[in-house]
């Protein structure tokens, strides 16, 4: 197992360098640089522009700029935002808990609905429930996030007034940041009204971000479960006289979960890309919204640093998923 983890870690370095190169080149392909963008429509004196570009090093060849960037990166310096002059890592740390809170809630939402839906659909194959779940999940999977988000806001926030339109918590509350997760922090200080407000703000973004993972998990659980239910050992379990719930929830589910766990791991990447759109729609002060603003302001260090950190996180989570895979599948665990 230790060797396996090291083999996987050795792949991380080339992947990192690949990410830096791609992001570095791509952000520079967008017309306009940070200084022009900051100057806005009024324009800027050409001499002043040239001077600022020189100060930031934008007048050098892209290749040289890239080498400078890599050099700083290897010293652990992700750079400073051109707009706020704050260190990229500091900004990221401040915003990341909001994104994690949203992503965790979304994946919990997707699991809580997706697993049971997939299991019941498989057990009652070809029933109305099965067709309903499969139809709904296909619709959910195909739904563009920005449109789905706007539809939900229109119905639940605007028409019905059930949920707030945007933000993380009502402006009436101020919660001292301890963990950065508002659901936890509000409970820590015992402010239940603030907790309710934070929860209400979370509902719609969670549904929007969780819809696609939910659809994938439901479909995967169903197909994996169907396969397992036809196995010989399920017949054995029934031949023992075990009640149906035990046959399904213990003997079948344990085996059916193996491919589902892999899919859940892959959803982490989907969650981050989805978070970029979802946070923008709901003005959720997280990493996704920060990146979008970074694009609008051509804030090169923010884009490069943010993408790199997210890439690292996704790689670590995928590694963890592979380790978990071994935990639930004894046939993998014992291979050297």
């Amino acid at each position: 197992m230790v060797r396996f983890i090291f083999t996987r870690l050795s792949l991380v370095v080339p992947t990192f360098i690949g990410i830096t190169l791609i992001v570095f080149v791509l952000v520079r392909l967008i017309p306009g640089d940070p200084i022009e963008t900051m100057a806005g429509e009024r324009g800027i004196d050409p001499a002043r522009l040239a001077q600022l570009r020189h100060e930031y090093g934008f007048d050098q060849p892209v290749f040289v700029q890239y080498l400078y960037y890599l050099g700083r990166l290897f010293q652990g310096d992700l750079g400073r935002s051109i707009v706020t002059h704050e260190a990229v890592i500091t900004e990221f740390k401040a915003l990341f808990p909001a994104t994690v809170e949203l992503a965790v809630c979304s994946i919990i939402f997707a699991l809580c609905l997706g697993l049971p839906a997939g299991i019941i659909a498989a057990v009652r194959r070809n029933s109305i429930f099965d067709h309903g779940v499969m139809g709904a999940s296909l619709t959910g999977y195909s739904m563009p996030i920005f449109w789905w988000g706007l539809l939900l806001i229109l119905l639940f926030s605007v028409q019905l007034g059930f949920t707030p339109v945007s933000g993380r918590i009502s402006v009436m509350f101020y919660v001292e940041s301890v963990t950065g997760f508002l659901l936890v922090d509000t409970l820590l200080v015992g402010d239940y009204d603030a907790f309710r407000s934070a929860l209400a703000h979370l509902i719609l973004p969670t549904i929007v971000l969780g819809t696609r993972p939910l659809a994938v998990i439901a479909r995967m659980t169903r197909s994996s479960m169907l396969e397992v239910l036809g196995e010989d050992y399920i017949r054995t379990a029934r031949a023992k006289g075990l009640p149906a719930y035990r046959v399904i929830a213990v003997h079948a589910l344990r085996n059916a979960l193996i491919p589902v766990v892999t899919v859940i791991g892959l959803q982490v990447g989907v969650l981050f890309t989805g978070a970029i759109l979802t946070e923008t729609i709901f003005s959720w002060p997280g990493v996704g919204k920060w990146l979008i603003e970074g694009i609008n302001r051509r804030d090169y260090p923010v884009l490069q640093g943010g993408t790199l950190i997210i890439g690292a996180i996704i790689m670590i989570i995928n590694l963890l998923v592979d380790v978990t895979y071994g935990l639930i599948n004894p046939r993998i665990r014992y291979q050297r």
């Binding site: 010989d232 031949a239 003997h251 639930i328 599948n329």
Partner: peptide, 15 residues
């Protein structure tokens, strides 16, 4: 009680 043809697939691989 009943026993089956394929012993290896008739036992649950995860337990």
């Amino acid at each position: 009680a009943m026993i089956f043809q394929e012993p290896t697939t008739s036992l649950n691989p995860s337990f």
